[in-house]
Amino acid sequence: MLRVFLNIFLAFFCCNFIFASDSSDPIFFPKAEIVNEHTTRIPFKLIDHLIVVEAELLDKKGDFIIDTGSETLILNKVHFPSNYIKKRKDTETAGILQRIDNPIERHLKELTLKDFSLKNKSSDVIDLSHIEKAKNMKLLGIIGYSILKDYEVFVDLYLNQITLTKIDTQGNKLDKKVYAEKIVDSIDFRLKNHTIIINCTVNDQKLKFALDTAAEFNQINKNSDKEVLKYFIPKKQLNLVGAGNRKIKVMAGKLHRVKLSETIYFGPMLTVLTNLNKMNEAFGTDLDGVLGYEFFAQKRTIINYKKEKLYFINYPYKKQ
């Protein structure tokens, strides 16, 4: 076995809450709140529209982006350079917003969230300096699907926290008392590779959208049906920088009348008009768009990858 395993702890500060293995190189989430052995809440901050958690790894303090659009755990090469490089990967790692060429793969022997272990998790080491520069932040990496999939993940933009609770192979929560608030609605999604795909309608036209916590803007494909684009009201031009450091100019506006079901619908969402053909190629998908920050800003959303279901909790009516 030629593989040199890299042991990385993803552990929580001062409470033994471990997200990792038995190495001396833990990732700490210093602000995490350990509810019990199955559940933890990690507060996040927003950097522009990115959901970012503070962490410490290998004596470095910085941020990780929570990204359902990313397949793996990505470490930033700027902070975790070549001494852990295992081999060049032949394949391309792809995120919803970006395509990244030739990542260098690391291997995590075991990732443990307290009593649970996620064995043989791979991580990619990629230069993310352009995101650091664009956002003026210290970015240690990106936490993606390979970490998130074994938990039920509550992305709460009201309490600015992400709740991770361990699930079994059927997707049932091991902790029965996770949410004290009422789940008001739910919807099925389909998992295509690591991508959450939800069916919805705009002006009664059926569409497929990816759900991506790290998409700062919703996106809708330029090639969408006219009946759909009628409800995209352009407002201004924006310059976007993707993780691949490619600058693109896009038309931004509001997308109206997005409905997930008869009971779940959205107010106008800031959306950009883009060409999604490349992304569809990369994932073998047939997406009409991407729902990101604006989705979570309107719905407090719980993601269960195993059950392929989203659950929703209401925003409070009364501000305390």
């Binding site: 350990i34 509810v35 019990n36 009201y158 309490l159 996770v178 608030e181 409070p316 009364k318 305390q320």
Partner: peptide, 17 residues
């Protein structure tokens, strides 16, 4: 206040953000 959370012992607290 509809916003509530469990504490580590299974009690429900109100939450102010």
């Amino acid at each position: 206040n509809s916003v509530k959370e469990y504490d580590g012992k299974g009690n429900i607290n109100s939450v102010c953000m």
